[in-house]
Design a protein around this nucleic acid. Structure first.
Lengths: 235, 235
DNA sequence: GCGAGAATAGTACGACCGTTCGCACTTTTG
DNA sequence: CAAAAGTGCGAACGGTCGTACTATTCTCGC
């Protein structure tokens, strides 16, 4: 995995990803390294289960060294959320935004999301894990996670609305509802894949999305382009 | 909340709920009381966040008193899972099983499930929380949770299959796929309701289930009975 | 009403938690 | 090149974790 070049700032801002100064000093680099390990660790244990001690041993530093970079555990959790959001935005949302508008763009998003959940690092997804952890335990971390989810929902709705303008979907279709439905499909996929270990989870998720899109299609049109080529070209 | 009478043993066994001897001695009663508090606590903190100390203060006993009833934390977690499954089975699944077969039975299940997620004790659902906690951390607790989820899926599939036999749904509809799709809708509902606090979550979940059922209906039939009366009579 | 055994309290333990502080070492800056 | 700032370590703190052992209190069949 090569060092990913940072996408254009305005696009990221559109996705609600805050971009800290990105200092290129010594400390800035190790901070980045710590964050990478922290995201991977949080994927396995959740944001609450992410302990300073385990993170320190993971990166081969002392606990106190962590506090030199992040003042508190809460600040570390916030930084982890932002780093994970940056990753998700660059690897899933941005490729979709550079695909042709309308249904192909939806499919690139779905395929990127699926492969993110499938072949990803062990432990799963920070966002899914911390969503259920924090859902009723108020505080800055919960608020940040909530805002990120809302922003993701808005992005999905925008992508779907583009499909309406292209004529791929009915004019009276509800983009927000589609965003919620798609998110539900992905949650179900995650659950079936991770906990139940069902090998048909991926195929079923695609079928569910297809059903969602079919229901949103203008009357009298068959199943639309599955956009396999577009999905491949998008990454 | 009155003491719920225990349902017929064979029905519970069908749902995969183990039924321990249910001793009526002093210790048996306090064990039941502890389990009730433990389930409520686990709903707020998850199975992993459920600590022996906090549970002890919650029920007004000492930590060592807990270990007299449950030998270890793991045994406590297993007991909590079983108690929660018993609750879910009696309050959601069983009422559905006594509703008229077919689509009305599906709707009683959905309504019970929704109200379970809505007006329930603070903190949410143990199963959702522990699903994401344990999904990749092997052990007896994870196995039990997995089996409970599989059993729930089978129950949903059976209920849907009954709708096929009644002629409410297409003969070539896939009950297992419906079970997965319904679960996904409920997960999405939970997420929208708990984390995002969206007041439209409930209405959207009903719309999603309606879409699921419409897609499964035999061709040439309009939207089926919404079964409002049946849903009310079922509880 | 008494004695056996269950039920619960008390205490102690080692491990790890998040956090702080003081001190070395290195990098950047003037 | 010296000073200032940044970077990381080691030790220690008060707490809480799960668990073990030993007492004490209570219940209940006889």
């Amino acid at each position: 995995m090569t060092e990913p070049t940072r996408p254009a700032a305005d696009v990221l801002a559109l996705l609600g990803v805050p971009l800290e100064p990105l200092r290129e000093s010594k400390g800035g680099r190790t901070r980045e390294a710590i964050l990478g390990a922290a995201v991977a660790l949080a994927c396995r244990t959740g944001l609450g289960g992410l302990t300073v001690g385990s993170l320190a041993t993971e990166v081969g530093m002392s606990k106190s060294g962590m506090f030199a970079h992040f003042g508190s555990k809460e600040a570390l959790q916030l930084a982890v959320l932002d780093a994970a959001a940056l990753e998700f935005a660059t690897e899933v949302v941005l490729p979709a935004l550079s695909a042709p508008r309308g249904e192909p763009r939806v499919w690139v998003l779905v395929e990127g999301w699926l492969s993110c959940g499938l072949m990803r690092r062990p432990g799963g997804c920070v966002f899914v894990k911390s969503s259920t952890e924090l859902d009723e335990q108020p505080g800055p971390v919960r608020d940040r996670l909530r805002n990120q989810h809302l922003e993701l929902g808005r992005s999905i709705a925008r992508i779907f609305a583009g499909g309406i303008r292209e004529g791929h979907f009915r004019a009276d279709a509800d983009p927000e509802r589609f965003a919620g439905d798609l998110h539900a499909v992905m949650l179900g996929f995650y659950h079936q894949h991770r906990l139940l270990g069902d090998p048909r989870a991926e195929e079923r998720a695609r079928a569910a999305v297809t059903a969602l899109l079919d229901a949103a299609r203008p009357p009298g049109e068959g199943s639309g382009v599955r956009a396999g080529a577009a999905a491949e070209a998008g990454r």
